[in-house]
Design a protein around this nucleic acid. Structure first.
Lengths: 302, 302
DNA sequence: CAGACCGCTGCAAAAAATGCAGCAGGAGGA
DNA sequence: TCCTCCTGCTGCATTTTTTGCAGCGGTCTG
């Protein structure tokens, strides 16, 4: 869209932190870029950037503007996709920021399901913690965010919320595999692997241990759920996971999962949402609707 | 703002209904305008306008686009005013769509109060019935709408809501002026002036008469509240009005007003609101806040 | 103190937008 | 039916805008 060129340029400058740098990434001269910026500053009557010896930084007026710019750009994108939708084929791109737990089964299944119906829609999946996910929504890097547990509700609009009780994951032969529901105290007798601090599951377990005033020394700590899961097979160790990260056929393979008693560890809540006040492009909106339905069908709605 | 020129042009074409017509009102050639439209249609890959023998009309893609365009334009305006606000002086323009009842005292007082603090803010006041007021919000002709009684809540976001009981307005010497609160039946004995059908007060009274299964033959009907009020002085006749249309010093002049018993005629509700999902420019937002405060101070909040 | 990086400007070339004149085509009136 | 009027659209010359090149002055770093 030609009329947004200046905006695209400004966005690039903000991202690059310097005019010359942005000019290069845009494959134009710094002159042209510089002139466009001077022009728009002239129009606004106020500098958009503070000139520093080693580049530029947004002024407060610039902050206001870049916000508007990003809104404009993604809203234009939405309009385009709505118009394309009018002529039959659904095209577009859906960008998702989510926590690790969505990666192994849930998102791949959902995305392939969606793409079966709309092959022209492309997807981007980015692993982010809840804070970064929210930031991704704000700067329009992501259309949809799916995060586990607490969300600062500043710019986040919840579309769906499901409970995610904590499951214990272990090798098939583990002694605890015999039980249907595990108590936290059952687990403490065995070696345990835990995700590192900032993650939702760890937080829940930490809280539970705190109220039970027990301490646990994890044998393994990792920020990769995949590693933890795999390690639970390799060494016969207990790991923890939420059901969305577990295949529905878990119990047929090497791994089995058993729920923890919810009296010991309360269920976490998984949030799916978008940027507050934004109208999603058709593709993203429809995919979000599909996710809502799936989440509601598979889990207990919070 | 240069980058919105094409959008401004398109908006003009939509309003004019023809390219040549719009070109004239924009003081450019039809060629230039026509080319810009062809260019953007080319960019979108879809015609924005249906070509009719006597001009053009928006296609369904165009409807989508014009919506976006109007949002963009007024959002840009908002950003500009926010930026201007940054450098101290508040500038801007507030456009209000409201019913007649606001004209005699309320809005003049509120606007002059606001302009005393921010002399660079200009105002536009447009009399609209509730339907037209809502339309004005949608096409961004108005920032704020103040309407009496029922609102279709499709695009309307209520900011404040106050009760407006119906008052009887009459000359100082009217026999009923002796009473403090009037029953509807008291009034029926005297000649009555009523606003014409679509207005809120008339609707309330009609409903009341309907449930009381009485009929009234108004001596005077008018769509001008000002005329009705003035006529109540000239000929000693009963007229009806809501308190927001009545000066606070009414009772000291030629006219007196007495509330109708709310058992007979229920209080109407006055709504102040804006377009749903829109962020108002600073000036409009602050004025709306002032209105909210004033309404809440002077009337019973609904 | 030299080198690298920055933003900015004068001038010429390239690109885009505009205006003029004129075309085809449908609507409405005589 | 013809004629007029209004419509959107196009080729070409002109004007306006944007871009690129080269170069200036400045700050920070090694």
């Amino acid at each position: 869209m030609r009329h947004l060129t200046t905006f695209r340029y400004i966005d690039a400058v903000v991202k690059a932190g310097s005019i010359r740098g942005a000019a290069e990434s845009l494959a134009i001269t710094s002159t042209a870029l510089n002139r466009r910026i001077l022009a728009i500053e002239d129009e606004l009557g106020v500098p958009i950037f503070e000139r520093l010896p080693h580049g530029v930084r947004l002024s407060s007026a610039g902050e206001l503007l870049i916000h508007h710019i990003r809104n404009q750009m993604s809203d234009m994108e939405r309009v385009r996709s709505q118009i394309a939708d009018l002529s039959g084929v659904r095209r577009g791109h859906v960008s998702i920021a989510c926590s690790q737990a969505l990666l192994p089964y849930f998102l791949p299944m959902e995305i392939s399901l969606y793409r079966k119906e709309h092959p022209n829609v492309t997807f981007g999946v980015h692993v982010r913690d809840r804070e970064a996910a929210e930031r991704a929504l704000v700067d329009h890097t992501a259309d949809i965010a799916i995060v586990f547990e607490p969300v600062r509700l500043a710019d986040f609009m919840t579309l769906m919320r499901v409970f995610q009780p904590v499951y214990v994951v272990m090798g098939r032969d583990h002694p605890l595999a015999a039980k249907d529901v595990l108590r936290l105290s059952d687990c403490l007798a065995y070696p345990i692997a835990l995700p590192t601090a900032p993650y939702g599951v760890r937080h829940l377990i930490d809280m539970a241990l705190l109220t039970a005033s027990v301490r646990v020394e994890p044998v393994i700590e990792s920020d990769s759920f995949e590693f933890l899961r795999n390690h639970a097979v390799a060494e016969n160790i207990l790991s923890f996971q939420i059901p969305i990260g577990l295949s529905e056929q878990t119990s047929t393979g090497e791994l089995v999962s058993r729920p923890l008693d919810r009296r010991d560890v309360p269920a976490g809540v998984l949030y799916m949402g978008q940027l507050k006040g934004r109208t999603l492009p058709v593709a993203a909106a429809r995919f979000a609707a599909q996710l809502s339905a799936s989440l509601a069908a598979k889990f207990e709605v919070s």
